[in-house]
Design a protein around this nucleic acid. Structure first.
Lengths: 332, 332
DNA sequence: CTGAAAGCGCTTACAG
DNA sequence: CTGAAAGCGCTTACAG
């Protein structure tokens, strides 16, 4: 745990720091340093408990081996799992992850980007909030490796890893239509995030493709503030409007709606089903028939890291969009 | 986004880097630099988009303004929430958080500690795994600010933030006894972590205090590998053994046991209740009577950061153990 | 094959 | 009040 520097070793051995540095960085052969010498240095370094000072290294080389991760909220299961997958993948390439939560607030996320850049992260994996476009454009101009995950913006290009939101929603809803349901309500999380728009589009497309008229009375938009109340209100209105199924565009909404629907189903003979984009593990236990899309979170993280590392290593910003398919599960 | 250094500003202004450095660090007054000058520097810095290079600063001052966080698994809700609370609290003091998951594996956690130390974190918040004692002792000897959260070791001192595991378990179980239950089973997560031992002790103590004989047939230990199968087996055995209630020593076990118990309750008229240390949010929805302890996660994080910052600022390792009470909730 | 020296961008005694 | 200079611990041309 003591601080041993290159200089200490070189002094001890009576050789130059250069030599020691080469050996410690595995450049002994390349630099044609004798095996003897190499051995000797390695041994001494071990003996003295030498550890390179990353800060100095980073300052000199401009590489910190740290990736910045910005999520909406690390305490949310989706992002927590994403973080884990990014962590695991990053470590394979020798990177650690520094994280921050933006709470869907562009001010916070740009602030985090700034701080992480100050700390010289080698790249940024960002779940961007509404309003982050310009900042991300800046990153791109500055050639800072970055990738957007889970969300992106239609008006800028970049590196993007997302699931097939529209397709997925389409499949989920069409699955319900195949079951002969016609009055399908939708509760949408409406915060200006593109993936939500696509899910809603998928819902609409499924109706259209199956010749069911779109009825905007059956679509309820719920915003971020007071989400619980608003979700409740939305569900109640849909139930009063005689829907047969409710499609929730994310798991949190489904969670908020579930209780009401269970209650409704207990009291009424006319049962209402649920389907949702994304779910929570426990939904299996709830004894409500439900169909949901499962996001390949681990793959999202893996691809994000892959794209970041690619950029860092090649020293160029690739420009790649990867769309991963969701799975659809049914609980009866 | 361009890299502007102190030197650039000083050159531009025809003053020394020293002067600029003082101004940028708010030491202008202290150093009795004229207001004019100060203004001029500040303006120029802004104009040129100057940002201090943290790496250089950190190298020089030995302070990185980054805290290392080691949890068992960031994708686990408990740790994800803990991470969020630590993040929020840390940011108030100007720190960011770099994290890693140990999977309860001492090799991984010590490796993470090493890497984070190499990266010169200012302090470490650790949810230690079995076997981390020696490493943590090393940290203490090296005077590296650290705090153990959620778990600790009885054979070493240090900074500790935990909940009152024994007391909490006692209260939960005694609550069941007050309801006239006598055959109370226990499924324990047995991985050599002290907090689990205490929960089990609390269970036993509650029995003893209420003059119920302790029956080790009713206590099942479940280990980390194949936890699902083992938990199922444990629950089945307890159900066959005519328990009236099962106490799970953590939320994951409760989750794994719930399904079986729901099934049992549907098929049998003799209903089995559940109580657990810690829960998941969704348990409210399950329509199983359940009593559970709620950990003040946010306070755990807050206290951990508080202790870390205290150590960093005072440059001494305090030696403080903080035990926070859990809440007990009941769902009927 | 090996070493002396510059430099990454800061901070901070020291000197005036 | 302000500046020249050393130094944090590395890496890497450059020179021999």
């Amino acid at each position: 745990m003591k601080k041993v520097s290159l200089a200490d070793i070189s002094k001890e051995l009576g050789v130059s720091k250069t030599l020691v540095s080469f050996v410690m960085n595995g450049k002994a052969e390349e630099m044609r340093i004798s095996e003897e010498m190499t051995e000797k240095v390695l041994l001494k370094a071990k003996e003295m408990g030498y550890k390179a000072n990353y800060l100095a290294k980073a300052l000199r080389t401009g590489k910190s081996n740290t990736i910045g991760l910005i999520v909406a909220d690390i305490s949310n299961t989706f992002f927590a799992k994403l973080a884990r997958s990014i962590e695991d993948e990053a470590i394979k390439y020798g990177y650690n992850v520094i994280f921050g939560s933006s709470d869907e607030d562009s001010k916070k996320s740009t602030k985090l980007i700034d701080v992480f850049l100050d700390k010289k992260v080698d790249g940024l994996i960002i779940c961007p909030s509404k309003g982050d476009e310009n900042y991300i454009k800046k990153l791109q101009k500055a050639k800072i490796p970055n990738v957007m995950v889970d969300r992106y913006f239609s008006n800028i290009e970049g590196n993007i890893v997302v699931v097939n939101n529209k397709e997925g929603a389409f499949q989920i809803v069409e699955g319900q239509i195949k079951k002969r349901y016609k009055r399908i309500g939708c509760v949408n999380f409406n915060v200006g995030l593109i993936q939500m728009d696509y899910r809603l589009e998928g819902y609409k497309a499924a109706l259209v493709a199956n010749e069911i008229e779109y009825d905007d009375q059956l679509v309820k938009n719920v915003s971020f503030e007071n989400i619980e109340e608003k979700a409740e209100k939305a569900v109640k209105e849909l139930l009063e409007n005689d829907v047969e199924v409710i499609f929730f565009t994310n798991n949190h909404l489904a969670f908020l709606g579930l209780k009401l629907i269970k209650e409704h189903n207990r009291k009424n003979k006319r049962q209402v089903s649920i389907c949702s984009f994304d779910s929570y593990a426990f939904m299996d236990l709830l004894e409500v028939p439900i169909v949901y899309g499962v996001q390949p979170i681990s793959l999202l993280g893996k691809n994000a890291v892959d794209l970041i590392v690619k950029q860092i290593d090649s020293d160029t910003l690739v420009n790649e969009k990867r769309v991963l398919p969701i799975d659809i599960l049914e609980i009866k």
